[in-house]
Design a protein around this nucleic acid. Structure first.
Length: 278
DNA sequence: TTTCAGGTGGTGC
DNA sequence: GCACCACCTGAA
């Protein structure tokens, strides 16, 4: 039996902070698809029990997915002492875990996220899975599907991929998938490369720029220093840290101020900003 | 009806 | 290099 301690974890913070679009509350409990398994989180006195409803998934794999290997106590202690905003943000988002998700799924998901909003991203990811991914099981009347594989998306035309909420990003996905396929790109390579090299490697794909690359690096390749800079992060950097409104200024500040825990800092601050502004 | 949304690629300088 | 701008489309 796998239990995630609730001292530094809660499902809402983790699944609603914008890193994952595949978990949803069903009858009050979060249910989500991880690889080809359906997981459900049941509250226990001191944590959450991870129940595997579909295909088996080992405790090691579940632990890796929930980033059990990271010491959140140390991370939060370190960040909270840096300044008062990080102190507030880490207190507010104390239950966030930086999930280690599937690279291909993150790559496609964050291509969809470009110039898009969260409800539409969810819609498109959901529709892609329903239409092209494998059916896994039905839980309380809700059908669950695996995220499509490279092989499954390879078979799609741009028109096929233009599902609800997708728009012009269908072309981005078709191109990226073709590039990966035709050039036999190894999606495991960035695990072996450092941050800068893996970022350049990802950016060779159509539809992947700086922001999307950083999301993929942070949410699947375990590059915890990656610091995705989007419109909310820019707003945060201007308002909380007085950073000038220029791309280079944002990048320079982030590189200088947030070091190896940059990715964690970004998630806490992002989640804090999203929930404290009108 | 218009505006906006967790950017990117293309173009012009 | 760097600054613009078009771009699908659902929702308010």
């Amino acid at each position: 039996m796998m239990i995630i301690s609730s001292e530094y974890f809660n499902p809402k913070d983790t699944f609603e902070c914008g890193q994952s679009f595949r978990w949803k509350p069903i009858d009050g409990l979060y249910v989500g698809v991880v690889r080809r398994s359906v997981l459900m989180l049941e509250p226990r006195p001191d944590g959450y029990e991870v129940k595997v409803l579909g295909e088996p998934l080992s405790d090691d794999e579940i632990g890796a997915y929930f980033d059990e290997g990271s010491d959140y106590k140390s991370i939060i202690e370190y960040l909270s002492m840096k300044d008062s905003w990080l102190d507030k943000a880490t207190a507010f988002g104390k239950g966030i875990r930086l999930l280690n998700q599937d690279p291909f799924e993150m790559l496609i998901t964050f291509i969809i996220s470009s110039n898009n909003n969260i409800p539409k991203i969810k819609m498109a990811v959901e529709a892609l899975s329903e239409q092209f991914g494998d059916y896994l099981m039905t839980y309380k009347g809700v059908k669950m599907f695996a995220f499509p594989t490279l092989e499954q998306l390879k078979a799609c035309t741009v028109t096929d991929l233009n599902v609800k909420g997708m728009g012009y990003r269908a072309r981005y996905i078709a191109n990226a998938v073709r590039q990966i396929d035709e050039n036999h790109l190894d999606l495991n390579l960035p695990f072996e490369l450092g941050y800068e090299d893996s970022k350049m490697w990802l950016k060779q794909l159509y539809g992947i720029g700086d922001k999307v690359a950083d999301c993929v690096l942070l949410f699947s390749y375990r590059k915890k220093n990656a610091f995705p800079i989007d419109t909310w992060v820019k707003k945060m950097l201007r308002e909380l840290y007085g950073v000038e409104d220029r791309q280079k200024a944002y990048e320079a500040f982030v590189d200088d101020y947030f070091d190896h825990y940059g990715g964690y800092a970004q998630q806490y601050l992002f989640y804090y900003m999203r929930n404290h502004t009108s």
